[in-house]
Design a protein around this nucleic acid. Structure first.
Length: 236
DNA sequence: AAAACTGGCAACCGCGATCAT
DNA sequence: GATGATCGCGGTTGCCAGTTT
């Protein structure tokens, strides 16, 4: 049923975009606006498929793109949002003005993911791995004057985004664990936060509404700012 | 100095969702 | 409801520059 991808057409350019191509695309969109990607290449005089034009515009040419390094606050937000939403890059990017889903995805894969792994945190579920990394072990052993490897390891449980937008977050106080050292005095705080994002996957809501619902819910509750994800706890 | 390796990023690909007929 | 067209998303690939051996 699916039509062969337009990219496979022989007369289409592929690979890196030239300045001339960029300029044609910019000029066309400035004049006619976004949309109708299918017909855009021909109208703009580009030997590209519409898909490629859309991607180029959204990820690189759009005037409102921020570009440059991610700030610490942006990193925090990405980690928090990823803990809540999983690999929903477009939703995550929607909370980061001037950032694209591709940019966020790349940054996650090349920076944040590794950072979490180095911290001994599974980037997939934001849980501390079974084996605490050497780095973390150092921190722990440094914090505790006596060896205490047999003590209860910090328990951070994040369940990634579930269907219907319900996210359960259970957090033990890792910071206390690391900094205080004496885990026996640290109660296993189990903050069972249940967030009900009005995101009904099973009903047909258009993407904009979905995004607005998610955005407004997150923004209004400001819950994100209160969420100490394991990664963030360890970064600080 | 050169080869091998690594990391970052832009772009591509395939698929599902949605729209149009 | 069936079919085809289009869009948008997330995973993956490939290129290139920088670093290490």
């Amino acid at each position: 049923m699916r039509k062969p991808c337009c990219d496979k057409q022989r007369d289409k350019n592929k690979g890196a975009w030239s300045k001339q191509e960029d300029q044609k695309l910019i000029t066309y969109i400035q004049t006619h606006g976004e949309g109708c990607w299918r017909s855009l290449p021909q109208a703009a005089g580009l030997l590209r498929c519409g898909k490629s034009c859309r991607l180029r515009w959204i990820n690189y040419l759009r005037p409102d793109l921020k570009r440059g390094n991610f700030g610490e606050d942006e990193e925090d937000l990405i980690i928090k949002l990823h803990a809540l939403l999983g690999n929903r890059w477009s939703l995550i990017a929607g909370r980061l003005p001037g950032r694209t889903d591709n940019e966020v995805k790349n940054y996650w894969n090349s920076h944040l993911r590794r950072k979490l792994i180095r911290m001994g945190i599974d980037p997939n579920n934001h849980r501390l791995g079974n084996c605490i990394s050497r780095h973390l072990q150092k921190q722990v052993s440094h914090a505790t004057t006596t060896s205490s490897t047999s003590k209860t390891k910090p328990c951070l449980t994040y369940e990634p985004a579930k269907p219907h937008g319900i996210v359960n977050v259970q957090v033990s106080d890792t910071k206390s664990f690391v900094e205080d050292g004496d885990t026996s005095t640290v109660p296993d705080l189990n903050l069972d936060l249940t967030m009900n994002i009005p995101y009904h996957c099973d009903t047909r809501i258009d993407e904009e509404n979905k995004q607005q619902n998610v955005n407004s819910n997150i923004a209004s509750t400001e819950l994100l700012n209160e969420l100490p994800t394991p990664a963030l706890v360890l970064f600080r």
